[in-house]
Nucleic acid binder design. Sequence first.
DNA 1: GCGACTTTGTTCCTGCGTTCACAAGCGGCT
DNA 2: AGCCGCTTGTGAACGCAGGAACAAAGTCGC
Lengths: 240, 240
Amino acid sequence: MSQVRPGARRVLGATAVESPVIQPRLRTIPEATVARLAVYLRVLAGFADGGRTTVSSGELASAAGVNPAGLRKDLSHLGSCGVRGVGYDVRALRERIARVLGAEQSRACVLVGLGNLGTALADYAGFGSRGFRFTGLFDAAPDRVGQRIGGLPVQPMTELEATVTGTGVSIGVIATPAEVAQQICDRLTAAGVRSILNFAPMTLTAPAGVDVRQVDLSVELQVLAFLGQQRAVPAGEVPA
Amino acid sequence: MSQVRPGARRVLGATAVESPVIQPRLRTIPEATVARLAVYLRVLAGFADGGRTTVSSGELASAAGVNPAGLRKDLSHLGSCGVRGVGYDVRALRERIARVLGAEQSRACVLVGLGNLGTALADYAGFGSRGFRFTGLFDAAPDRVGQRIGGLPVQPMTELEATVTGTGVSIGVIATPAEVAQQICDRLTAAGVRSILNFAPMTLTAPAGVDVRQVDLSVELQVLAFLGQQRAVPAGEVPA
DNA sequence: GCGACTTTGTTCCTGCGTTCACAAGCGGCT
DNA sequence: AGCCGCTTGTGAACGCAGGAACAAAGTCGC
């Protein structure tokens, strides 16, 4: 099971400018760990809803689909938070992870492109409960402008820059056709957006200092198809 | 990229049951390479549409957003296909990658759950052009049954097993609410589906031999938010 | 025909991620 | 109060991925 993973395997965090006296703790968290922390957060919400107050690493790992030892190592990156012999306090761990991921504060996002996928994203309840809120929806089609999706009106593309600079947007989401994705990316970065999530099947180029994450839904399907094919013909060579 | 993926970094392919005489070539392809091959395939389609007949590793790597050396290493997994001093033949390389990924043959898929996201997936043109076709759309809501989406009628859940066994479905896509995702997964696996792509924010458990890939859209956003936060406060410690 | 340039394919190496295994610490029971 | 069992946290080893550098090979120009 993999979360989309065609990504840079770079190590996150500060560039090791550590003052050795003040900061004995490591300040870098691997990207793979960050992605799993988000999953743990979701699983912990389920445990909390079920009334659990403590969980062991084994239970949590099972629910998240990972190795218990790896889960403990992931959690060790944010300091000791568990009690030996007992486990982890659900509430405290949730807050700790949320704080590290920055999910405690609401982050303003804009969404460009409200076709089927964009509409699904705007309506997706999972974003709001995880600290994200859309402050602007934009589309180039005149007949989409003015529609309300998820309680927010769709605005024309001309308003993009004003909304970005006016509402302190930190993340831009692109769900447009591939042909215009690069152009949207340019406008977003020019307006000051430094984090972009791209759903268009197109490799974006952005200035240094801008983080771009690519989600290509068909890539996931193709990896799955490869796995299935490999399983079907385990010893067969690719025909000439 | 990462597409989302906090995932197993397992090596795909046969379990090294190689007959040393017949098969001198390695039979395993790393999962990360498979994901990138799918991206190369998309980029190559763009070059072909532009009339190009040959490309160098540098051009291809630039268009795909990867390192040229890494690209050549990826391609070396499927045998020498380039000409030194010239580059790669666009057409031949496309066919080679498509064959390795199994994208040359049309694969039957079923899609369960036609909310906003499911509808977006059913309409997504990128699937059809990459060797995937939906042979069944299913939803539990009576008012959705009978609607035509992407030329296909939505069927009631009761028809799921019959369609799976009748049309030789190899991949099941789940886009339902999280509460029923596990139940759908159980029905799909019971009906013989051995590859599942899950968009519900819920960790699925499946029998051994079934490949499950998880795509959680909010995980991507949270990784992006973490990157942005890390950049904003490079020296700040998490407050107590 | 020959030399030089271009580009591939491979090899080495460094670093990260994952896993296993064990020591340390805490609660409960007697 | 002391012991036992359970769970965390960490240290070490292993395997994989990514990057750089180099040799092989083919083409273009003279």
